[in-house]
């Protein structure tokens, strides 16, 4: 058994088999299959419309697949979504925060939905980590984009999820906010399994244990960090993400 930092790395945290999603006549995901080991960090790359966000929304139980099977921590998402959702955290470009509540009120609200034990202490700890303790009583609508994203990270980590889905978390952040985000991800890296969608290859590969390119709803490239030739990845990415600043 390969145990690192108290986590059994031989166990798959995410298992996806033949996942297909059809919207109307459009097949957005076509028989996608892959695994992510516990403690792994999968970077999901691909052009706009490739199905990356749809894939993450299915893994996060926000939309149902048309066919195929998804297991999170061994639990099929179709059978016991509530148990699966308690293991998931999502950070997307939308912070999922209420602008007319304060930072503390937002975290209290989500903490109650997740039945977080020792909620007050957990909120103190997280606000301190994301450097927002001094703004805890301010309305979220007064926050900058970077502050919103930091609070979104606190919200996503509040219930101590084992898997974090990150959908382009760097979008709209200034360099300082990116540094804080990177620092936080590095800090929590060893305790969590990650799936991150990004267009930023350098940032993605700094933390990843594997990378996958999705084009037209199909996986065209997936390799672990050990097998990964970064130049090959960049070349495939450039070929498939033409005109998107790649």
């Amino acid at each position: 058994m390969d145990v690192v930092d108290g986590m059994d790395k031989t166990v798959n945290e995410v298992e996806v088999r033949g996942l297909t999603k059809v919207f109307g006549r459009r097949t957005v995901l076509d028989k996608v299959s892959f695994d992510i080991e516990r403690g792994g960090f999968l970077t999901l790359l691909g052009p706009n419309g490739a199905g990356k966000t749809t894939l993450v929304r299915i893994l996060a139980t926000l939309i149902a697949p048309t066919s195929g099977e998804v297991r999170i921590s061994g639990l099929p998402i179709s059978d016991d979504s509530a148990a699966v959702r308690s293991k998931i955290g999502l950070i997307s470009h939308s912070p999922l925060l209420y602008s007319d509540l304060t930072a503390e009120e937002n975290l209290k609200f989500y903490g109650k939905l997740y039945s977080v034990e020792g909620l007050a202490g957990r909120i103190d700890e997280l606000l301190d980590q994301v450097e927002l303790d001094h703004r805890r009583f301010d309305l979220v609508r007064t926050f900058s984009k970077g502050m919103l994203q930091r609070l979104a990270i606190a919200r996503a980590l509040l219930h101590r999820p084992s898997i974090l889905f990150l959908d382009e978390p760097h979008t709209g952040l200034d360099p300082h906010a990116v540094d804080i985000l990177e620092g936080l991800l590095a800090y929590i890296r060893r305790d969590h399994t990650f799936v991150m969608i990004t267009h930023n290859l350098e940032k993605a590969l700094a933390l990843s244990s594997s990378a996958m390119i999705l084009v037209g709803g199909e996986i065209i490239f997936k390799k672990s960090r050990e097998e990964l030739d970064i130049e090959e990845l960049k070349e495939i990415y450039r070929q498939n993400v033409k005109g998107e600043g790649a």
Binding site: A60, T61, L62, A82, A83, R85, S86, I88, L90, S92, S94, P95, L96, L97, Y98, S99, D100, Y110, L113, Y114, R155
Partner: peptide
């Protein structure tokens, strides 16, 4: 409208509540 426009409906749906 607030739930949808601020993306908070996803926040509610992500939580492990019925």
């Amino acid at each position: 409208v607030h739930e949808k426009d601020e993306g908070c409906l996803d926040g509610l749906l992500l939580s492990p509540v019925d």
